[in-house]
Amino acid sequence: MSNEHKTKPGDETAAVYWRENVKLVCGLLTIWFAVSFGAGILFVEALNNIQLGGFKLGFWFAQQGSIFVFVALIFVYAARMRVIEKRFGVSEE
């Protein structure tokens, strides 16, 4: 963020809103990375030593688990943003 242009009234809260959004996005993307690139690729052999029903855990993350988590991440983001938007009074609803 550069400060070379003049701040208008209201910018303070706009900046705070944006920071909260970016923080949330970073948190969710960490999980996104952990389940796919982490569990499904980088640490797949180690996790394959753990059995989940008839699945090796690493293989399950790579072919099923990561996809379920992806779906959940998007809905969590949508729900959290609704709350944040209401709080800042910028919701369109």
Binding site: L28, L29, W32, S36, G40, I41, V44, F59, A62, Q63, S66, I67, F70, L73, I74
Partner: peptide, 15 residues
Amino acid sequence: YDASVYLMGWTGGYV
């Protein structure tokens, strides 16, 4: 297992 690239790749993009 190698086909996981498509499964994760073509869904993870939606996140």
